[in-house]
Simulated assay, not measured.
Amino acid sequence: MPTYEFRCKACGSTFDVKRPIAEASDPATCPHGHDDTVKLLSMVGLAGKASAPATGGGGCCGGGCCG
């Protein structure tokens, strides 16, 4: 089941809620009892090192420097 991160606008605390994807946008109550919360954008699936595209060489020695 996915975990969604929320932040409370009243007290500033952040907290996680596990719920089905169908309920992802439903409101969540802060653990301190506040109802004014906002769902945060999760970077879990987006984080990671980007790789450079492979290049096919070029130059006089297949991409190396001749000299």
Rank of each mutant, 00 (worst) to 15 (best):
M1A: 10
M1I: 11
T3M: 10
T3I: 15
T3Q: 11
T3H: 11
T3F: 11
Y4M: 04
Y4D: 06
Y4H: 04
E5D: 10
E5L: 14
F6C: 03
R7A: 14
R7G: 10
R7K: 14
K9Y: 08
K9G: 12
K9E: 14
K9W: 08
C11Y: 05
G12M: 03
G12Y: 05
G12P: 05
S13Q: 14
S13R: 12
S13Y: 10
S13F: 09
T14M: 11
T14I: 08
F15V: 03
D16M: 09
D16L: 08
V17I: 13
V17E: 07
K18I: 12
K18D: 15
K18M: 13
K18W: 10
R19C: 11
R19M: 06
R19L: 05
R19Y: 01
P20L: 09
P20V: 06
I21S: 13
I21F: 14
I21T: 13
I21M: 13
I21P: 07
A22V: 09
E23V: 08
E23R: 15
A24P: 07
A24R: 12
A24I: 11
S25D: 15
D26N: 13
D26H: 09
P27M: 03
P27G: 04
A28N: 03
C30G: 02
C30V: 03
P31R: 04
P31K: 03
H32W: 11
H32A: 15
H32E: 15
G33E: 04
H34Y: 04
H34E: 05
D35T: 15
D35F: 08
D36P: 05
T37R: 01
T37S: 01
T37G: 03
V38G: 05
V38D: 10
K39Y: 05
K39R: 15
K39M: 14
L41C: 07
L41D: 13
L41P: 09
L41V: 14
S42E: 08
S42D: 08
S42R: 01
S42Q: 04
S42C: 03
M43S: 14
G45N: 07
L46I: 10
G48P: 04
K49N: 12
K49L: 11
K49C: 08
K49F: 08
K49E: 10
S51H: 06
S51W: 03
S51P: 05
A52S: 09
A52N: 06
P53C: 02
P53K: 00
A54C: 05
T55G: 00
T55Q: 00
T55K: 00
T55H: 00
T55C: 00
G56L: 06
G56T: 10
G56M: 09
G57T: 00
G58S: 03
G58W: 02
G59Y: 02
G59I: 01
G59S: 02
C60L: 15
C61K: 07
C61G: 11
C61W: 12
G62R: 00
G62Y: 01
G63N: 03
G63L: 00
C65S: 13
C65M: 13
C65T: 09
C65Y: 09
C65K: 11
C65R: 11
C66P: 05
C66D: 09
G67W: 06
G67C: 13
G67D: 11
G67M: 12
